[in-house]
């Protein structure tokens, strides 16, 4: 089976670099699945989970904004933050979730609303990947 080199880098340092058979992630326009030999591509990513598949299972990562660069044998994900399930602080994500929900309930101006919405998305994503 042919593989792709996947590297995930954030401003705080590289998170992961390894070979996988398939990458699927959530781009801003919808789900994208990348197999080896894909044409060069650049796509922005939304907040979501990235699934990396290889023969002994699937690895999941929580990604928070950024974009991916695809070359035939290499995928680079540049994210503002990225966490492996083991690195996710579930308690903190839960707190962030309830905080964001509270903020969404109370009527506020647009900017705060958007911010709370994003925070909620991030928290849900972390919980989703972490559990």
């Amino acid at each position: 089976m042919r593989t792709l080199t996947v590297s995930v880098v954030t401003p705080d340092g590289p998170v992961l670099e390894d070979n996988f058979e398939m990458v699927s992630c959530k781009a801003e326009t919808g789900e994208l699945g990348i197999l080896p030999g894909h044409i060069p591509l650049v796509a922005p990513l939304s907040i979501g989970a990235v699934r990396l598949k290889r023969d002994n299972g699937i690895e999941r990562l929580s990604i928070n904004g950024g974009f991916m660069e695809v070359r035939p044998d290499k995928v680079t994900i540049l994210a503002q933050s990225a966490e492996l399930p083991a690195d996710i602080d579930i308690e903190r994500a839960k707190e962030a979730k309830s905080r964001a929900e509270g903020r969404l309930q109370s009527k506020q101006d647009d900017v705060d609303f958007q911010r709370a919405e994003l925070a909620l998305k991030r928290a849900l994503n972390r919980l989703d990947v972490g559990q």
């Binding site: 801003e28 060069p40 650049v42």
Partner: peptide, 27 residues
């Protein structure tokens, strides 16, 4: 320089990419 496909399009990519680039430079 390799030719890229852009998903969805160039303009949107630049909209996302350039602010991130500037933020990265600041960081």
């Amino acid at each position: 320089t390799s030719e890229y496909e852009y998903e969805p399009n160039q303009e949107q990519i630049l909209n996302v990419l350039l602010p991130q680039y500037a933020e990265a430079l600041i960081y």
